[in-house]
Design a protein around this nucleic acid. Structure first.
Lengths: 323, 323
DNA sequence: ATGAAAGCGCTAACAG
DNA sequence: CTGTTAGCGCTTTCAT
């Protein structure tokens, strides 16, 4: 049988409440007793029962993370696992356990969110995706349940969220890869409904207009490698260009496959994510680190602050730096 | 305030124990009462408090998963995330919540395991790695805490584990890619201390001996792409060969990079994992699906059975099929 | 500075 | 078939 607070109390010759106070480091307890009790706790390797504590404190010390259906398709992108690592790291730092729920579709995401919130199992929820008209967000808001979003939500009012500075990063990137003598550039992106796409396109257009470039935009259905390949085919059948911004790593992979197969050389590409692409010999690629781990860490920080009522800000921008 | 069992009882005009019995579908409760109580539960959207239930039942309905330090380096391999999905899927099916602990090193793995077990937070633990002299396993065994291992442990006595049939799969693979006229084959693997390497090498040697092949084995320090590249360099500097077994997807990627850079063609490769490699035009590759999702599912099944005392078997082999 | 006692929300004997 | 009661292990008034 697991050892309980009562046994600690008996062994130390104090009451259970004293032990409890020692654990929470209550200043009213004398140093002498604290020392004695701590010795017993140590010796007997006592660990408070989380369930019991949770029951009375109405706090479990657990955070829930809803993994969107994209996880299922985006195996190949290290993005999610890196975010998870950031979440885990910060979770440990702030003394939270992390519970993950992998969802197969939007419905499961919503149900998972509700279940987690309603069971009283978690103190807060982290959403790894935002959709248009997101039911989960709506529910969480209505019930006033603490939550944070990784990504920029449609409706920002009073919601906690973390994201990259996608607009500015894309803007800077265009300026970086364009040369004096070349005035043409193409943006290759994925799903046009996602805020990430919208923001990157916005930064792209802003820079292009300022620099008076001859630009065009190709958006695919998703961020898959297949789409990258397909879009490359389309682009090169329609025009000749040597400057590209490619919005995600799988797209980039597909794009590069096409280049290689078609023996296209001397192309400049700016792309996002530490794309795990093979070495490239014949083209120039600038990779932006969107720092997924940092996104995860900031999200947990925001959420933990919110739960502990010491929230200052509502969102956090994780800077993508060009260098 | 969240709604409790007491309020359901009052609204339905019964005692709390009756409500509790309705929830657990106790056969002694009349259909009439069940109906009435369920209606109230539905109407008031009542969800039992997991903490309270856990406290009395000594069961939380949560499973803990220890993610090894490899997760940190093996970003690029979809293996872990697929296993996680399997775990999540089966977890839902068997009504378990899943808690993940990402660890940076062996020490963190051990501490994470203890913490999870001792806090009473989880009913069982899933280990995603086995090491030589694994302290976590030892601890779990000693304390008699339910756990399962993904991978084949050193000491199998009384422990639950799931793994692929690596020996047989490698054996079959050799037979498959070897042609009548070629008698030479090379095995490329990672860390030689891991059971997976040992088993695959065993299968490789068995087949080679049976077929009287001229074979050699190259093992790297790890399963990284860099090692794959380095090993390829080494191999081709030492010999000429056109048949290869490559033990993991990152190794394969590095290996292919070398082939491409060196314009080596007409090579036959057998490899593991649904390696997310780019299309290959000039060489023949056979990919074995090690079914990570299934590994995760079987692990949860085994663990859940163990917790619920309906365990039949101690381990489960997830077949790798050649086709 | 410490102890006694109530109670968090639920389940499980025990009674009837 | 259903209600009463006693905890599960912990925190938190309220006394002292």
């Amino acid at each position: 049988m697991k050892i309980t607070i009562k046994e600690i109390a008996e062994d130390a010759g104090v009451s259970v409440s004293t032990v409890s106070r020692v654990i929470s480091n209550n200043p009213k307890i004398s140093e002498a007793t604290k020392l004695r009790v701590r010795e017993v706790i140590e010796r007997l390797n006592y660990k408070p029962n989380i369930m019991a504590r949770g029951l009375v404190k109405r706090r479990t010390g657990i955070l829930g993370v809803i993994m969107p259906k994209e996880t299922t398709t985006l195996f190949t992108s290290p993005f999610f696992i890196e975010v998870m690592q950031g979440i885990s790291l910060k979770g440990k730092e702030r003394d939270y356990y992390i519970m993950y729920d992998f969802c197969k579709n939007e419905k499961e995401e919503y149900e998972g969110t509700r279940k987690l919130a309603e069971s009283g199992l978690v103190d807060g929820i982290c959403l790894m995706s935002t959709r248009k008209n997101d039911k989960s967000i709506q529910y969480l808001k209505e019930t006033n349940f603490p939550f944070v979003i990784i990504g920029e939500p449609e409706e920002k009012d009073g919601v906690l969220w973390v994201d990259n500075n996608n607009l500015k990063a894309t803007y800077d990137m265009v300026k970086k890869i364009i040369h004096e003598n070349s005035k043409k550039i193409v943006f290759v992106g994925g799903d046009k409904n996602l805020t990430v796409t919208i923001n990157r396109v916005a930064g792209f257009e802003k820079a292009c207009k300022e620099l008076k470039l001859d630009y065009s935009i190709y958006l695919g259905k998703d961020f898959s490698r297949g789409e990258g390949y397909r879009l490359a085919e389309k682009i090169f059948s329609e025009q000749k260009c040597e400057n590209f911004i490619i919005s995600d790593d799988n797209l980039l992979k597909g794009f590069l496959e096409y280049l290689e197969k078609s023996n296209i050389e001397n192309v400049n590409i700016g792309s996002f994510n530490k794309a795990n692409i093979k070495k490239v010999w014949k083209n120039k690629i600038f990779l932006l680190d969107i720092k997924p781990e940092k996104l995860g860490m900031e999200a947990v920080d925001l959420l933990a602050n919110c739960i502990q009522d010491k929230l200052e800000s509502c969102n956090k921008i994780v800077d993508i730096e060009l260098n």
